[in-house]
Design a binder for these strands. Structure first.
Length: 500
DNA sequence: ATGTCC
């Protein structure tokens, strides 16, 4: 009768198309849900993703259900692609459910150029971008010295604007206008600040990149117009985070929380889920430090974007102000944020699964999104004014061989996913496996036959990021679109890509 | 992801 999916240790119950549930049992406080097609489930069930998702339901104060997005895979304690809405008054906050790379995210900058304008300049452009934008492991940033780190942590893109690295419209087209007011730089250790010292304005390594792309398809003309996207247009995608600084902050607080909140930790099935109880000093400090890292990462992407404008001005021999180089949007996909959501509660007002709720109330939650993107629909006050009538842009990077998507926050995201959707294609194989399967130079040559120009600090990075190591981004986006959590607006394909 | 192990 009931549709099920056999995922080894787990038998998933089909709630409806693309919605699968691990029923609540034992110490689980709520059920867990995976949003995926059967094809994507086959890939998810190979690793520890489902165990980690179930473990998440043990966190005190978790509301409704723990969620895994269609691109989910195993992470540190909590799946990449995981979403958990946890009570901000009676629950907890968990650094492992935010991720090591705090405010890892993506921004897209538009241009007025078309693909024809760029044809023949790809080699020059990729070389110039590679030269101008610091990348790779370790040091070297666009801005070094002074108190750039402290300013970035405290004031975010406001500081970049003051320093001439931004224009006003960059702020109005960034989440929170590029500044988290809850940031507390004093909660960031000296060691973390020192690691960030020479990384302000740097891409980093791994899956981080800067890509010049062309828009190949616009699926929704009206929203495409609202976003200013059209076919053959050149856009720039920047994917990076808070570098060693955010990594250090995550590590610092995991260790502190493990020491201080041993009692809570002993109730959890995995040490990697270590969490600070809401209202505790460490919860406040971690939240303040994390918000400061969010500001740092926004400044990081802002500086890289502004430097890209200067490179385009140089290569195309025109002032960048005349090339329509405006920020479309910047999305954070590793973050925990206080947001108000409608949730079900029992007779005592405690969090419960929807099926057991006797009332629905608005609560302030720490919405943990790790490898998941906020996807708020039209009307939410957090959506910038420019997009409030249509819904926020959601940027989903795919791979160098498949391209990327722009979606629009879907009307069903508030009901289904605490206003969230996927963040990328999701890895299919480990970095180690990728280096056995591919050689960087060959991948580069293959991509060149598709008119994609790639340049990296290390050939190993190209191998690790070969198109074949990623899931089918079309399938991930199809599921998001059909669920109504993030709807297809446009698709892009790479022209030039630089990476660490 | 990450001064790819303090």
């Amino acid at each position: 009768m009931t549709d099920t999916f056999d995922a080894g240790e787990f038998t998933l119950r089909k709630v409806r198309e693309h919605v699968w549930e691990i029923p609540q049992e034992g110490e689980m406080r709520v059920p867990a849900r995976i949003l995926a097609s059967e094809a994507l489930l086959e890939e998810i069930s190979d690793d520890k993703t489902l165990q980690q998702l179930r473990n998440t339901t043990h966190l005190p104060g978790i509301h409704r259900h723990a969620l895994c997005m269609p691109d989910g895979h195993q992470g540190y304690g909590f799946p990449v692609g995981g979403v958990a809405g946890i009570d901000a008054e009676n629950g907890c906050i968990s650094p492992g459910a935010v991720g090591y790379d705090i405010n890892c995210g993506v921004r897209m900058m538009k241009t007025d150029l078309t693909y024809d304008d760029v044809r023949g300049h790809e080699e020059e452009l990729v070389e110039a971008l590679f030269e101008a934008v610091p990348s790779g492991l370790g040091g070297g940033g666009i801005v070094e010295g002074g108190n750039a780190v402290e300013e970035a942590l405290e004031r975010g893109v406001d500081w970049a604007l003051e320093e001439g690295w931004a224009v006003e419209s960059d702020l109005t087209h960034c989440e929170d206008e590029g500044r988290r007011p809850d940031a507390d730089p004093s909660a960031v250790s000296q060691k973390a600040k020192d690691r960030g010292r020479n990384q302000v304005g740097s891409l980093g390594s791994g899956n981080h990149f800067l890509e010049v792309q062309r828009v190949t398809d616009v699926f929704d003309g009206a929203i495409g117009d609202a976003y200013g996207l059209s076919e053959d247009q050149i856009v720039v995608l920047i994917h990076c985070g808070s570098r060693g600084l955010g990594h250090q902050v995550c590590n610092d607080y995991l260790r502190e929380i493990e020491k201080t909140h041993e009692g809570l930790l002993s109730q959890l099935p995995d040490r990697e889920l270590a969490a600070a109880p809401a209202g505790s000093q460490l919860a406040e400090e971690y939240y303040g430090a994390m918000c400061a890292c969010i500001n740092f990462a926004w400044v990081n992407r802002q500086l890289i974007m502004h430097r890209t404008r200067e490179v385009f001005a140089d290569v195309f021999d025109r002032p960048w102000e005349e090339m329509g180089m405006d920020l479309l949007y910047d999305v954070a996909h590793n973050i925990a944020k206080k947001e108000v959501h409608e949730v079900g509660v029992d007779a005592e007002g405690r969090p419960v699964a929807d099926a057991d709720a006797v009332d629905r109330v608005e609560r302030e939650l720490y919405v943990h999104r790790k490898g998941a993107t906020r996807a708020f629909p039209a009307g939410r006050p957090e959506v910038p004014e420019a997009y409030r009538d249509v819904g926020q842009p959601v940027i989903i990077p795919g791979s160098m061989g498949a391209g990327s998507y722009v979606l629009c926050g879907g009307t069903d995201s508030m009901d289904l996913t605490f206003g969230s959707t996927a963040h990328g294609a999701g890895r299919l194989m480990s970095r180690t496996k990728a280096k056995q399967e591919y050689w960087g130079g060959d991948v580069q040559d293959d991509l060149r036959t598709q008119e994609v120009y790639v340049k990296a600090q290390s050939g190993a990075t190209i191998a690790e990021e070969a198109p074949g190591v990623y899931k089918d981004v079309d399938e991930v986006v199809r599921v998001s679109d059909e669920l109504g959590i993030g709807s297809k607006v446009a698709r892009t394909f790479p022209v030039c890509n630089i990476k660490g």
